[in-house]
């Protein structure tokens, strides 16, 4: 549904995007993550036909963003990270304006506006002036605008930025609902746990280059050769750390919030031997378990904090 072929973009002398190759299948929820200045917004603006790449080409639903911009706009809904609404308009007027801008026939506009208001739970605010809406409500309004022309692909740039926890949960539910409706989602966000809940695939961008792409488990398999382990002891954490470090197959030993974390490559028997060794040292072993790896761990492991 989305395909980027050797996409590069340069702002004067700065290379923001460096030969990006990317593919997102139909119906997928794709999390596009990366540190600030990695090139996420540049990629999104190219997909939304707002920016022309210096090199390469991008396709949305088979249409080129360069030569078939109007076709791309027909099938793509774009929600930018920062957007303005028109004070002095009512909610329904705003949506009707964009319905006309997306070439929805005049006779169908009212019904379409009512449908998206219902989907985004803004029906009660239909007659409200936009300047009286909260930040979360405005975010919903922008999403409602994005859904007006029933796009197959939704490109959302930091949709949850600036929202309070409740509004974030509501937005996440809404996005989950959209994935259930079969929409292809391309979402960039800094709040990784939110993305992990509903995104099926992930792409990690750093300094304009895609450093990892695929399902979270697949990326983990390539990044981690072995298991992530966590150990808690009541006494002498340093000694426990030294013991683990000396044991064959252990690597990346570190202490985080009073917990000893490390990677282990070896058989289950070897792992059991290590556990018994720790227990024999009488350090007060209270936990020896495999750590659950989430999107944040993956992100931290594959990126080095480099900005383009």
């Amino acid at each position: 549904m989305i395909r980027c072929c050797g996409l590069s973009h340069r702002y004067d002398e700065r290379l923001a995007l460096d030969r990006l190759d990317l593919q997102v299948g139909s119906g997928e929820a794709f999390a596009f993550i990366g540190p600030n200045g990695a090139g996420k917004t540049t990629t999104i603006r190219i997909l939304a036909t707002l920016l022309e790449p210096s090199e390469g080409e991008a396709f949305v639903a088979g249409f080129s963003t360069l030569d078939q911009a109007d076709e791309v706009r027909r099938v793509l809904g774009y929600m930018p990270d920062s957007f303005g609404v028109y004070d002095g308009m009512r909610v329904w007027e705003y949506l009707e304006f964009f319905a006309a801008a997306y070439r929805i026939p005049r006779g169908e506009r009212q019904r379409t506006v009512s449908d998206v208001l219902e989907l985004t739970e803004l029906g009660a605010r239909r007659e409200t002036n936009i300047e009286h809406l909260s930040k979360g409500m405005r975010q919903r309004l922008c999403l409602a605008k994005t859904l007006l022309h029933d796009p197959q692909v939704l490109v959302l740039d930091e949709p949850a930025s600036g929202l309070d926890p409740r509004a974030r949960i509501d937005l996440k539910e809404l996005l989950r609902e959209l994935t259930r409706m079969g929409k292809t989602l391309f979402v960039s966000s800094h709040i990784l746990p939110e993305l992990a809940d509903f995104c099926t695939t992930v792409g990690i961008l750093e300094a304009g280059r895609l450093v990892a792409c695929g399902r979270v488990e697949e990326i983990l398999r390539t990044v981690d050769q072995g298991r992530s382990m966590r150990v808690r002891v009541l006494r002498d954490l340093e000694k426990a750390g030294a013991l683990v470090e000396e044991f064959p197959g252990s690597s990346r030993v570190r202490v985080q919030d009073g917990v000893l974390l490390f990677q282990f490559e070896g058989t289950l028997e070897a792992l059991a031997e290590l556990a018994e060794g720790l227990a024999d040292q009488r350090l007060g072993l209270i936990e020896f378990a495999e750590a659950r790896t989430d999107l944040e761990d993956v992100f931290m492991r594959v990126t080095r904090g480099v900005v383009s």
């Binding site: 603006r45 939304a48 036909t49 707002l50 109007d70 706009r73 027909r74 793509l76 774009y78 930018p80 957007f83 303005g84 964009f98 801008a101 997306y102 070439r103 605008k145 022309h149």
Partner: peptide, 8 residues
């Protein structure tokens, strides 16, 4: 950008 990304 919202206008430019629309079909206008």
């Amino acid at each position: 950008d919202l206008l430019r990304a629309s079909r206008l």
